[in-house]
């Protein structure tokens, strides 16, 4: 049995590591232009865990894959904005420089461990491939390091398992392999794209706790993409909520859950039943559907589903305003909303 209580919020963070400004990504498809990201801005400090929350199609995955320019192109294209990683704009560097950052200073843990590993390559080779790209080690040293990494992420008899293929691992173990790979070159930032969504509940808990403890131990910053508000509550320092390619709300984790100020965030929190709730009130579902991102939207993207919406919401996109220290909301009626006038 293992218990963890490693969790600090607020100002444990160090220097600014990543700063994303007005990032815009579009997909040029046969049906038209899909506005996947409509100018999102956020930052991550050293050692921070930022969670980006949203539903499918909200742009949360495109948003982080754009950081390493990993979106499929064509049809995807980053059309505007800046991605400053320790002061360097990742959108301006050439492919060779970008490659030293990919898997080096910034690494990724993908969603589905079943499909994210090469099925015909031994896992040892897949890990050492990353190590040898970024570090000047002999193949033997790299192999030793890979075995150490597998041990660190909790895979029994790691040296033996290097020569196994992905299909010889269970889902949870494969995700551990992915984590070992992501950690292999001591990254400063790990992008975790829904790393536990494809896993069972008890395995999900193992992986969450593993990443949490590794993060505390190594001081790595993490961007955690999720649709699960429970997981986010467990490990994030700060949270950004995305809807239709916009960040609609951004706040420290306690603040966001205690005083949500965007109608969509409130809607999400209210639509979930709680595991520990004895009294059952009717779930407050958000009516309607997420918008189609094909073509330009006018006004606030959430307006058609919002009970606070007025004329201005339908006409002009709301700017992000600060409603409390480090708590930003893009809503014309945030005062009304956060005053608790919940319809």
């Amino acid at each position: 049995m293992e218990t963890t209580s490693l969790h600090t919020t607020g100002s444990k963070q160090g220097k600014r590591l990543l700063e994303v400004r007005n990032l815009e990504t579009k997909f040029y498809t046969a049906d038209g232009v899909v506005n996947a990201l409509n100018g999102i801005s956020y930052s991550v400090d050293e050692g921070e865990c930022l969670a980006i929350v949203g539903e499918s199609g909200s742009g949360k995955t495109v948003g982080v894959l754009s950081i390493l320019r990993l979106i499929q192109s064509p049809p995807g294209r980053i059309v505007g904005g800046e991605i400053l990683f320790k002061g360097t704009d990742l959108l301006k560097i050439d492919d060779k420089e970008l490659r030293t950052i990919r898997g080096g200073a910034i690494s990724v843990i993908f969603q589905d461990p079943m499909t994210s590993l090469n099925p015909v390559m031994r896992v040892g080779a897949q890990i050492t491939e990353n190590i040898r790209e970024h570090e000047n080690l002999t193949s033997r040293q790299a192999r030793q390091k890979a075995a150490d990494l597998l041990g660190m992420v909790g895979i029994p008899t790691p040296a033996k398992r290097l020569d196994d293929y992905p299909h010889q691992f269970s889902g949870g173990m494969r995700q551990r392999v992915m984590i070992a790979m992501a950690l292999s070159c001591s990254p400063q930032l790990i992008i975790a794209d829904e790393p536990t969504t494809a896993l069972d509940v008890t395995i999900q808990a193992q992986i969450v706790e593993l990443i949490k403890s590794l993060q505390a131990e190594l001081g790595t910053a993490v961007i955690w993409i999720s649709h699960d508000l429970g997981v986010v509550a467990r490990l994030a320092d700060n949270v950004a909520v995305m809807y239709a390619g916009h960040i609609v709300e951004k706040a420290p984790v306690d603040e966001l859950y205690a005083r949500p100020a965007h109608p969509y965030t409130i809607g999400l929190l209210n639509s979930l039943p709680r595991l520990d709730a004895r009294i059952k009130t009717k779930l407050k579902a958000i009516g309607g559907l997420p918008p189609n991102l094909l073509g330009m939207l006018q006004g606030c993207a959430f307006a058609p589903r919002c009970m606070f919406a007025t004329q201005i919401c339908r006409e002009q996109a709301p700017p992000a305003i600060e409603v409390a220290p480090r708590h930003q909301v893009a809503c014309w009626h945030s005062e009304l909303v956060s005053a608790g006038e919940r319809p």
Partner: peptide, 24 residues
């Protein structure tokens, strides 16, 4: 997905194509 993983490691496009895509 695994090709995206390979790219995320920073390996060269040639290696992505020959070591990962071609064999599969």
């Amino acid at each position: 997905d695994f090709v995206r993983t390979a790219r995320a490691k920073g390996i060269s496009e040639n290696r992505v194509v020959y070591a990962h895509v071609l064999r599969n």
